[in-house]
Simulated scan of single mutants.
Amino acid sequence: MKPKLIVLFFLLFACSAAFGQEKQNMTVVEKGLIKVSIMYPYAEGKTFNMEYYETKHMPMVASFLGSNLVKYTIEKGLANGIPNQPLPFMAIGIFYVKSLSDYQAAIGPHISAIRADFANYTNTTPVILVSEVVK
Protein backbone atom coordinates (compact mmCIF):
# COMPACT_ATOMS: atom_id res chain seq x y z
CA MET A 1 0.00 0.00 0.00
CA LYS A 2 1.26 3.48 -0.77
CA PRO A 3 2.19 5.70 2.22
CA LYS A 4 -0.48 8.31 1.37
CA LEU A 5 -3.19 5.63 1.27
CA ILE A 6 -2.03 4.24 4.59
CA VAL A 7 -2.23 7.69 6.19
CA LEU A 8 -5.65 8.29 4.63
CA PHE A 9 -6.90 4.91 5.84
CA PHE A 10 -5.59 5.64 9.35
CA LEU A 11 -7.28 9.07 9.42
CA LEU A 12 -10.59 7.63 8.23
CA PHE A 13 -10.39 4.87 10.84
CA ALA A 14 -9.57 7.36 13.63
CA CYS A 15 -12.42 9.67 12.61
CA SER A 16 -14.96 6.84 12.45
CA ALA A 17 -13.81 5.55 15.84
CA ALA A 18 -14.11 9.02 17.37
CA PHE A 19 -17.55 9.51 15.81
CA GLY A 20 -18.68 6.14 17.11
CA GLN A 21 -17.54 7.02 20.63
CA GLU A 22 -19.25 10.43 20.44
CA LYS A 23 -22.44 8.77 19.23
CA GLN A 24 -22.33 6.32 22.17
CA ASN A 25 -22.02 9.22 24.63
CA MET A 26 -25.08 11.05 23.29
CA THR A 27 -28.11 10.85 25.57
CA VAL A 28 -31.09 9.42 23.77
CA VAL A 29 -34.52 10.71 24.71
CA GLU A 30 -36.97 7.85 24.46
CA LYS A 31 -40.19 7.90 22.50
CA GLY A 32 -43.19 8.20 24.82
CA LEU A 33 -41.49 10.30 27.48
CA ILE A 34 -43.29 13.42 28.66
CA LYS A 35 -41.41 16.66 28.00
CA VAL A 36 -42.23 19.67 30.17
CA SER A 37 -40.78 22.83 28.61
CA ILE A 38 -40.68 25.96 30.73
CA MET A 39 -39.94 28.85 28.38
CA TYR A 40 -39.05 32.35 29.53
CA PRO A 41 -40.05 34.93 26.88
CA TYR A 42 -37.68 37.73 26.04
CA ALA A 43 -39.00 41.29 26.17
CA GLU A 44 -37.42 44.68 26.69
CA GLY A 45 -36.67 45.15 30.40
CA LYS A 46 -37.03 41.46 31.28
CA THR A 47 -34.14 39.81 33.11
CA PHE A 48 -32.95 36.27 33.78
CA ASN A 49 -30.26 35.07 36.21
CA MET A 50 -28.95 31.89 34.55
CA GLU A 51 -26.52 31.08 37.37
CA TYR A 52 -29.31 31.01 39.96
CA TYR A 53 -31.61 29.05 37.65
CA GLU A 54 -28.93 26.44 36.97
CA THR A 55 -27.64 26.03 40.52
CA LYS A 56 -30.76 26.61 42.65
CA HIS A 57 -34.14 26.63 40.90
CA MET A 58 -33.90 23.70 38.51
CA PRO A 59 -32.21 21.37 41.03
CA MET A 60 -34.92 22.28 43.56
CA VAL A 61 -37.73 21.41 41.15
CA ALA A 62 -35.89 18.27 39.98
CA SER A 63 -35.65 17.10 43.58
CA PHE A 64 -39.46 17.05 43.81
CA LEU A 65 -39.78 14.68 40.85
CA GLY A 66 -38.01 11.65 42.29
CA SER A 67 -37.67 8.52 40.16
CA ASN A 68 -40.17 9.86 37.60
CA LEU A 69 -37.47 12.25 36.34
CA VAL A 70 -35.38 10.84 33.48
CA LYS A 71 -33.29 13.98 32.95
CA TYR A 72 -33.50 17.73 32.69
CA THR A 73 -31.79 20.29 30.51
CA ILE A 74 -31.30 24.03 30.62
CA GLU A 75 -31.01 26.14 27.48
CA LYS A 76 -29.84 29.73 27.14
CA GLY A 77 -31.45 31.70 24.32
CA LEU A 78 -28.95 33.14 21.86
CA ALA A 79 -30.84 34.34 18.82
CA ASN A 80 -34.00 34.15 16.79
CA GLY A 81 -34.06 31.69 13.89
CA ILE A 82 -34.81 34.65 11.63
CA PRO A 83 -31.93 37.14 11.34
CA ASN A 84 -32.45 40.60 12.83
CA GLN A 85 -35.53 39.53 14.81
CA PRO A 86 -35.76 39.70 18.60
CA LEU A 87 -34.85 36.74 20.75
CA PRO A 88 -38.05 34.75 21.44
CA PHE A 89 -36.93 33.18 24.74
CA MET A 90 -34.20 34.10 27.22
CA ALA A 91 -34.07 30.56 28.58
CA ILE A 92 -35.84 27.22 28.48
CA GLY A 93 -35.84 24.57 31.18
CA ILE A 94 -36.92 21.08 30.17
CA PHE A 95 -37.86 18.10 32.31
CA TYR A 96 -38.19 14.64 30.74
CA VAL A 97 -40.44 12.45 32.88
CA LYS A 98 -42.01 9.03 32.56
CA SER A 99 -45.52 9.95 33.68
CA LEU A 100 -47.51 13.18 33.40
CA SER A 101 -49.79 12.26 36.29
CA ASP A 102 -46.79 11.49 38.52
CA TYR A 103 -45.21 14.80 37.48
CA GLN A 104 -48.36 16.72 38.36
CA ALA A 105 -48.72 14.89 41.68
CA ALA A 106 -45.11 15.68 42.59
CA ILE A 107 -45.25 19.35 41.58
CA GLY A 108 -48.70 20.12 43.00
CA PRO A 109 -47.76 20.34 46.70
CA HIS A 110 -44.74 22.55 45.86
CA ILE A 111 -46.27 24.91 43.29
CA SER A 112 -46.33 27.89 45.68
CA ALA A 113 -42.64 27.47 46.52
CA ILE A 114 -41.75 27.06 42.85
CA ARG A 115 -43.63 30.22 41.85
CA ALA A 116 -42.26 32.19 44.80
CA ASP A 117 -38.74 31.31 43.64
CA PHE A 118 -39.30 32.98 40.23
CA ALA A 119 -38.50 36.38 41.78
CA ASN A 120 -35.00 35.11 42.59
CA TYR A 121 -34.02 34.74 38.94
CA THR A 122 -36.50 36.43 36.57
CA ASN A 123 -39.12 39.13 36.22
CA THR A 124 -41.00 37.42 33.41
CA THR A 125 -43.76 34.82 33.50
CA PRO A 126 -42.87 31.50 31.86
CA VAL A 127 -44.85 29.78 29.14
CA ILE A 128 -45.20 26.06 29.85
CA LEU A 129 -45.71 23.40 27.20
CA VAL A 130 -46.29 19.74 28.07
CA SER A 131 -45.70 17.39 25.16
CA GLU A 132 -44.95 13.77 24.34
CA VAL A 133 -41.70 12.75 22.67
CA VAL A 134 -42.65 11.02 19.41
CA LYS A 135 -39.16 10.50 17.97
Rank of each mutant, 00 (worst) to 15 (best):
A62N: 12
A62D: 10
A62K: 14
F64Q: 04
L65C: 12
L65S: 13
L65K: 12
G66I: 04
G66C: 03
G66P: 00
S67D: 15
S67L: 10
N68S: 10
N68G: 06
N68A: 12
L69V: 10
L69K: 09
L69E: 11
V70T: 11
V70E: 10
K71Y: 08
K71T: 12
Y72R: 05
Y72S: 07
Y72L: 11
E75D: 14
E75P: 05
E75A: 14
K76H: 07
K76F: 05
K76M: 11
K76N: 02
G77E: 03
G77L: 01
L78F: 03
L78T: 12
A79V: 02
N80G: 05
G81F: 15
G81H: 12
P83K: 01
P83M: 01
N84A: 05
Q85I: 02
P86M: 13
P86R: 08
P86K: 11
L87I: 05
L87Y: 05
F89A: 00
M90V: 02
M90W: 02
A91L: 01
I92V: 15
I94M: 09
I94G: 00
I94Y: 04
F95Y: 13
V97P: 02
S99T: 04
S99C: 04
L100W: 13
L100E: 15
S101T: 14
S101Q: 15
S101H: 14
Y103I: 06
Y103C: 01
Q104I: 10
Q104T: 11
A105F: 07
A106W: 04
A106D: 05
A106P: 03
I107C: 08
G108T: 14
G108R: 13
G108C: 11
P109S: 07
H110A: 04
H110G: 04
H110N: 13
H110D: 03
H110V: 07
I111C: 04
S112Q: 14
S112H: 14
A113P: 02
A113K: 14
A113G: 07
A113H: 07
I114F: 04
R115D: 10
R115N: 15
R115S: 13
R115P: 00
R115F: 13
A116Q: 06
A116L: 03
D117W: 01
F118M: 13
A119F: 04
N120L: 01
Y121Q: 02
Y121V: 00
Y121E: 00
T122H: 07
T122R: 09
N123K: 09
N123Y: 09
T124Y: 06
T124Q: 12
T124C: 10
T124G: 13
T125C: 07
